[in-house]
Simulated scan of single mutants.
Amino acid sequence: MTRRWLHLHLAAPLMAFGGVTIDHVGPTRDYPSASALTGLFANALGWRHEDTIAHQALQDRMEFAALSALPEGRHAPLVVTDMQNAKLEKNDKGWTTWGQPEGRAGATYDSPHRRRRDYLADHDTHVVLRLTTDDAPTLEHLAKALDRPARPLFLGRKPCLPTRRLFAGWIEADSPHAALKALAAQGLTGRALWPDDGRPYEGALKYDLQDLRNWKSGLHGGTRIVCEGDIA
């Protein structure tokens, strides 16, 4: 059955799609996660961080695939690593996502606070996405919100501002992989990720992906099986 897919074009000098963070190291994936897309739409719609039920319902309804349109001659995304160092004194405080300032704990203030964050540089990603039910918000609501967002939008981390319109039109296809092939028919080819549907795809890798979030707890919320391969 042919379905309608929202086409997103994510492009920026720097962007980050998150990943499994260990200690101070924050990596980036090659493709946006389900939780990242949920957050992007929620920000465009003007939802607040505590609107956990709405976030969870939207994430649970999403079906999507993503394609990295790499420049000719480049076979993998270009990753830039940012080493961040900040010395926090005893009385220094910072704002948090739960609306309360948080101070420094412990008795030692001489050592700097270090973080490592990876970014995709000069990246170009296309996403095809549909919603599995007709509940609000609909695909049309999401498209309008991307063009007139309630708040400024960013791609993964707040410094990563998009350089072009995110809503790129509509695709008609009967599956995520078919939607990717429809992009290829428009000249958009590259490495892609799509949900496993049980069909054999020659040359594609199949693996478990940890990209779901439990929006109530704010922690990892499960895995899904995906396929990764070339779309030409």
Rank of each mutant, 00 (worst) to 15 (best):
E202P: 11
M15Q: 13
A42W: 08
A204K: 08
Q210S: 15
R48H: 12
L142K: 09
T125G: 03
H177C: 04
E63M: 10
T163D: 06
E72V: 11
E72Q: 09
D230E: 10
L67D: 07
D135Y: 13
D51R: 08
A143Y: 01
S35I: 05
D197Y: 10
R104E: 14
P13Y: 01
Q100H: 06
V25M: 12
A192Y: 11
C227E: 01
T38H: 05
A12L: 11
A36C: 14
P112G: 09
P27E: 00
L183T: 12
R199S: 05
L40E: 04
R213Y: 09
L155R: 03
A11E: 14
G190M: 05
D196W: 13
D23L: 13
L193H: 07
Q59I: 07
K181S: 08
Q59D: 05
D30H: 13
P152C: 07
A105I: 14
W98R: 13
A44S: 04
L219M: 13
G222T: 00
P200S: 01
A11S: 12
H75A: 14
V25Q: 10
A105E: 06
P101C: 09
A185T: 11
A168V: 09
R29P: 00
A173G: 01
P101N: 04
S175T: 04
A136K: 13
P176A: 00
W95M: 13
A136S: 15
A36R: 07
A143S: 15
E202C: 04
A66T: 07
P101H: 06
Y31P: 05
W95Y: 08
G39P: 02
A76E: 11
T96N: 06
A107N: 11
G190Y: 05
A16D: 04
G26H: 15
G169F: 04
F41Y: 07
A178L: 07
A178H: 11
L14Q: 08
D30W: 14
D118I: 10
I171V: 14
T138W: 09
Y207Q: 11
A184D: 00
A178E: 08
P162W: 12
T2C: 03
D174M: 07
P162S: 12
V20W: 00
D197M: 12
T28Y: 01
L212Q: 10
R4C: 10
D122L: 12
I231M: 08
Q56R: 02
N91I: 01
A36V: 14
L88D: 01
P137F: 13
L88G: 02
M15C: 15
G156D: 05
T125P: 03
G106M: 02
R117N: 10
L67R: 14
E102A: 15
A192Q: 10
D135P: 06
